[in-house]
Nucleic acid binder design. Structure first.
Length: 500
RNA sequence: GGCGCCAUCGUCUAUCGGUUAGGACAUCGCCCUUUCAAGGCGGAAAGACGGGUUCGAUUCCCGUUGGCGCUACCA
């Protein structure tokens, strides 16, 4: 439809562990670019300075590479449109914000969070859409200068028309209409001087000459703001297609609290990257009648058609992934490559060395290794309520400790034995128990036995995702806490934290 | 609450007004087989509801219901 080269991108935010949704979106963008002989760009959206970490970025890139995806431009490989990390592009956004300010398409806003909150509460009560009321638009130039001189913090907001409709053209959904009165005057530059996603993404997509944007459905409602920015700048917006959000079996948005969502989980569980990618591809462009569903990446690229992307939110069907993965194992791996895969997965020299150090002091015969280390090579463990009877803790404390740990582990920036130990220690203190007694049920949940090789190292070795999965499994077995219980327990932990 | 998206077997989906509503996973049965898988064959299983439009609606339109997303100085 246009003569320019196709360029797509995926723009993960490095604020946590790599998510299958990211791989899904990346795959679609990758396919489209490859199919058209264009470029696929990886850009890091780290404008949230408080939550972004270099470690998360590193792990996300590694996870996407594990999936077999490659990009032509990105923070790790460079490219002609760099830098590819938004935190390194601040001055660019500032200059574009200044343009909008100058043209009157954006304005400085000095409103306090409290006033904004009150405003929204009132709007909701009145049945109106939440939207900035324009107070700071009424200030004179002198007033604005005075406030600025007085050192009042301010943000830059997008000016949105008070009437008319914005039409967002989605490649699959067709035109979607939004009344401008329901579009909020979004913050473009935060008071810390950093841009928000909205500004950064539009500026970058334009400067990086992105022609097609395949992104998650959660962006549909902010598309009008983006389109407004394109028009204020006088730029041509890219083609848009919003991909459906992957779902839990209960149809809610796929979340790690309810399901495995981490790419690392699938790797730890022994899924082959080809199978995972194949499965995600089927979600983006299902097989036709009679077509073999086992497709390698080149085939996926060849057959991909944006018009085939289903727009209902698909449930992430683990059973089907299992079937596909099984097929890859038995149909695509000869004995040699099978051995190679197993080595990569479980017994890489580095991993084996660490395991050896932990296990060697605890065995008398090499054959003791089997039962001792089986948990490191397993997915879900077959536990029963009896498994927890050997622990000194009462049933309630066990449930409390396990449940609290899930949330606390998710808050950890780094996943290592030291941090893990600290969490368990804090929970033990809050429950007024000995750390060793609190650790015992964790041994059972994680290793399947009250005695094993050191727990915290084992947890680090297994990875956060698999640990979360086993903890959830144990909690379900012992009785998942009600919302109220969980709140009480978290309050207990929080109180103790304050006291210390 | 407001705005928006979506709606076919349990799950992923096909159908571009007329089909015995097709395929895949899961499930059930049979066959093969020293076990278990795998494999082969077969079965059961679906158009949310109510109005229109039409000779004819799963398909087009409207409403209801339901699910989901957004509703931040997060992305």
């Amino acid at each position: 439809m246009n003569l320019t080269r196709v360029r797509t991108r995926v723009a993960p935010s490095p604020t946590g562990d790599p998510h299958v949704g990211t791989a899904y979106v990346a795959l679609v963008n990758y396919c489209f670019a490859r199919q058209h002989g264009g470029e696929f760009v990886l850009r890091i959206e780290d404008t949230d300075a408080a939550r972004s970490t270099a470690e998360s970025e590193r792990v996300i890139l590694a996870a996407l590479h594990w999936c077999g995806l490659t990009w032509d431009e990105g923070p790790d490989v460079g490219g002609p449109f760099g830098p590819y990390r938004q935190s390194e592009r601040s001055s660019i956004y500032a200059s574009y914000a200044a343009k909008l300010l100058a043209s009157g398409d954006a304005f400085k806003c000095f409103c306090t969070p409290e006033r904004l909150e009150e405003m929204r509460v009132a709007q909701r009560a009145a049945g109106k859409p939440p939207r900035y009321d324009g107070q700071c638009l009424t200030y004179s130039a002198q007033e604005i200068a005075r406030r600025e001189a007085a050192g009042e913090p301010y943000v830059v907001r997008l000016r949105v028309p008070d009437e008319g409709v914005c039409v967002v053209n989605d490649l699959r959904r067709g035109p979607i209409e939004f009344e401008y009165t329901s579009v909020d005057m979004q913050v473009l530059i935060k008071s810390d001087g950093m841009p928000t996603y909205h500004l950064a993404n539009v500026v970058d997509d334009h400067l990086m000459e992105i022609t097609h944007v395949f992104r998650g459905e959660e962006w549909v409602s902010s598309a009008p703001k983006h389109l407004l920015l394109y028009s204020y700048f006088g730029w041509q917006p890219p083609e848009l297609l919003h991909l459906p959000l992957l779902r839990n079996p209960d149809k809610s948005k796929l979340s790690k609290r309810k399901n495995p969502t981490g790419i690392l989980f699938f790797r730890a569980m022994g899924y082959l990257p080809e199978a995972l990618v194949n499965f995600l591809a089927l979600l983006a462009d299902p097989a036709r009648d009679g077509e073999d569903e086992m497709l390698d990446l080149p085939a996926i690229v060849r057959r991909f058609d944006p018009q085939h992307v289903p727009i209902g939110g698909p449930v992430f069907d683990l059973a089907k992934l299992d079937w596909l993965n099984g097929r890859y194992i038995r149909e695509r791996l000869d004995p040699t490559s099978f051995v190679q895969r197993v080595q990569e997965w479980a017994v890489s020299p580095e991993r084996l060395k660490r395991v050896a150090q932990l296990a060697a002091p605890r065995i008398e015969r090499l054959s003791d290794l089997g039962p001792l280390l089986a948990f490191l090579f397993s997915g879900r463990l077959a536990l029963t309520t009896q498994s927890f009877e050997s622990t000194k803790l009462d049933a309630l404390s066990i449930r409390q400790a396990l449940s609290l740990s899930v949330a606390e582990f998710d808050k950890l920036a780094a996943w290592n034995a030291v941090e893990i130990e600290r969490v368990i220690g804090r929970i033990a203190a809050a429950l007024d128990k000995k750390a060793r007694d609190v650790a015992r049920p964790f041994y059972v949940a994680i290793t399947g036995s009250p005695t094993s090789i050191p727990l915290y190292d084992s947890m680090q070795l297994l990875g956060r995702d698999l640990v979360r999965e086993r903890l959830r499994n144990a909690i379900d077995l012992l009785g998942a806490p009600s919302k109220r219980e969980l709140q009480e327990w978290e309050a207990l932990l929080a109180r103790h934290e304050v006291a210390v």
